[in-house]
């Protein structure tokens, strides 16, 4: 830049501007003519990639020439030169194959005459509506139409459901008022699920990798150390005693959590949830906790992040459970019931 500036100052300008302008204009006009003749030549011959390239490079040369001389051109000449360059470019572009340089992002928008494609477009736009309407009776015609147009997606849902059936992750599903016990010691279990339980007591003894909890009401859940993460959704009036590396709680109401967790637990869309430290005992729990890297109390049970309350002041959605209100240490085993000890 500095080099260029000094060149600018040092270079003598022997020619009066008018003559430079005239020479430039003649040069410009000549090359413009030659490019135009080349382009018109394209009309007769088959346009190949190489001669298109030469023309386009000579246009950009011309542009360069104009740019370097722009400071000494009167504005009218400058504008007319720019116009003629853009004209040259557009006339060349008519020879360039259309597809070149274009990203095909939403290809189905391009042929709206095709009825299938059009249907896809409709389904794209109405997707949001469908999912809000899905649970309800499709009383209005829009909802009905959108359900029809969503066939492709439904097929895919079926595929997912099929996977879920054939795999059937181990867990307890659809139970009421039962005591559910699972001992993981000496078993090879990865993830475990608790779905749709009401009024149950769940005891999971030993280490495992991940736990998914969905739709629990009025349950007590006692869990040994979870090596990976813990995901809880839609629970009401429950007590959880659990240890894990990560804990996420969504849509919980009036629940108490007794946690030992290596990272900060989080809540989202929850209210009236309370937290306290872990308080579970069973034979050899210390070894299991050690194995899962949860041997020490990290104090994170009280460092809760509320994703619905991103402010410095304490979230109204959760609180620390008062010591008087906490349950005592819970002792569980696979045979007897849970008891304070």
């Amino acid at each position: 830049m500095i080099q260029r500036l000094s060149d600018l100052h040092n270079s003598p300008k022997p020619n009066p501007p008018s003559s430079t302008t005239t020479t430039f204009l003649t040069n410009f006009f000549n090359s413009k003519l030659s490019i135009e003749s080349q382009i018109s030549h394209l009309h007769q011959t088959q346009s190949t990639k190489s001669n298109l390239d030469t023309i386009s490079s000579s246009i950009s040369d011309l542009e360069q020439l104009l740019a370097t001389n722009s400071y000494l051109l009167p504005s009218y000449e400058l504008r007319s030169c720019l116009d003629s360059i853009s004209n040259l470019k557009s006339s060349l572009n008519s020879f360039v194959p259309r597809k070149k340089f274009s990203f095909k992002n939403k290809s189905h928008f391009k042929n709206p005459t095709n009825p299938i494609a059009r249907k896809n477009v409709v389904s794209e736009f109405e997707k949001n509506e469908i999912f809000s309407e899905f649970g309800k009776n499709p009383t209005n015609s829009i909802a009905q139409k959108s359900v029809v147009s969503e066939v492709g997606n439904n097929e895919n849902n079926e595929a997912v459901n099929e996977f879920r059936k054939s795999y059937d992750s181990p867990g307890f599903e659809d139970r009421e008022n039962e005591v559910l016990v699972k001992d993981f010691r000496n078993t090879e279990v990865g993830e475990f699920v608790l779905v749709n339980l009401e009024g149950c007591e769940v005891r999971l003894i030993g280490c495992f990798r991940a736990l998914f909890v969905h739709k629990l009401k009025n349950c007590r859940v006692y869990v040994g150390p979870v090596h990976g993460s813990f995901l809880i959704e839609e629970v009401e009036d429950c007590v959880f005693v659990l240890a894990s590396h990560q804990i996420r709680i969504h849509h919980a109401k009036r629940c108490d959590f007794y946690l030992r967790v290596r990272s900060r637990p989080i809540i989202e869309d929850s209210n009236a949830v309370r937290f306290a430290p872990y308080c579970l005992r069973y034979d050899e729990i210390d070894e299991d906790l050690e194995k899962a890297n949860l041997g020490e109390e990290s104090g994170n049970w009280g460092n809760v992040d509320d994703f619905k309350w991103l402010r410095a002041v304490q979230s109204p959605n959760w609180s620390v459970l008062r010591e008087d209100d906490r349950i005592g240490t819970i002792c569980i085993s696979s045979s007897d019931g849970a008891a304070d000890c």
Binding site: P170, V189, G190
Partner: peptide
Amino acid sequence: IHGALSPNEITKVLN
């Protein structure tokens, strides 16, 4: 994790 879907199955499910 024991019981996780295989990469092929994920390709299908995610369409």
